[in-house]
């Protein structure tokens, strides 16, 4: 039974990719095939494949691009999550502990301003500002700039997601923790965050998906990430269809794998015995 379920899941992924490929292939070749009807459909397809991906090792644009995309996404997620949790916890603490205190008021104000600015301006503008205005030295790695930029951008969104998770936990949980003698921080760590994390996991997964796809704008500062890799092939072969479809499929597969991982995590965290 379990094995059959597993097969079903794989079947779903394979089907999704196959459907996408077929749809694009049919549409694409119906359009392009009309122009050169004298050669066979498959011979044409093969020639295009070779021209776009095999010749001059052009597939390497995609793989090296993919690597950069993954590097940027991975480290940006780490920065985003760490910073996001810190901001959310500080803001909740400001709200809960002492509303009238000058220090907490100021801190809360600064954090709010940060969220407003980051969420209120396009990620691309932030990337360009960080690259051209803040890190002007040529010695700074572009990848580093991208990681910082996407990490900061993501942190603002994650902060609000985490805060919503903290607020979703019943106040009684806080009181139970504090009344046992735990400090505010210990209560947060042992009781509130584990429960909040479970609640916000779907929203976090969403944010990771957005982040991965958003790294496609890193090409603007000259990083050879996945999108730019595909675009580079296009500029060499003057064929838009295959390179762009390939790029789209690769993004799709990454996102599906990520979704799967988040799903698995969600199931593992279901510890309320139901």
């Amino acid at each position: 039974m379990r094995k059959r379920l597993l097969n079903k899941k794989y079947a779903y992924y394979i089907a999704a990719i196959a459907v996408l490929l077929i749809v694009f292939a049919v549409v694409g070749f119906a359009a392009e095939g009309a122009a050169s009807a004298d050669t066979g459909f498959f011979a044409e397809f093969k020639a295009k494949l070779i021209n776009n991906f095999v010749k001059e090792d052009r597939w390497k644009y995609l793989t090296s691009g993919l690597l950069n995309t993954l590097i940027i996404s991975f480290f940006a997620v780490i920065i985003g999550v760490v910073l996001g949790f810190i901001i959310a916890i500080l803001r909740s603490a400001c709200d809960m502990l002492d509303k009238k205190n000058i220090f907490t008021k100021t801190l809360n104000g600064i954090l709010k301003a940060y969220l407003t600015v980051i969420r209120g301006t396009p990620a691309l503008i932030q990337l360009l500002i960080i690259y051209y205005v803040i890190f002007t030295s040529p010695n700074v790695s572009k990848l580093f700039v991208a990681v910082i930029s996407f990490g900061l951008n993501s942190s603002a969104y994650i902060a609000e997601i985490v805060r919503s998770g903290i607020m979703s936990i019943d106040k009684g949980q806080f009181e139970a923790g504090r009344s046992l003698g735990f400090t505010y921080a210990q209560t947060m760590w042992h009781f509130i965050l584990p429960q909040a994390f479970k609640n916000i996991l779907p929203a976090l997964g969403n944010e990771f998906i957005v982040l991965i796809k958003e790294t496609s704008i890193a090409g603007y500062i000259g990083i050879n990430e996945l999108t730019r890799g595909g675009d580079f092939i296009r500029s060499r072969t003057y064929e838009a269809f295959l390179p762009l479809i390939a790029v789209a499929v690769i993004y799709l597969v990454i996102v599906m794998i990520l979704t799967k991982l988040v799903d698995m995590m969600e199931r593992r965290l279901k510890t309320d015995g139901r």
Partner: peptide, 20 residues
């Protein structure tokens, strides 16, 4: 206060057990 609270536990109307 965290040390002092350890001397007097509280039982709540809504139990407030840790569900996780």
């Amino acid at each position: 206060i965290n040390k002092q609270r350890q001397k007097m536990m509280m039982v709540f109307q809504h139990f407030n057990l840790f569900p996780h």
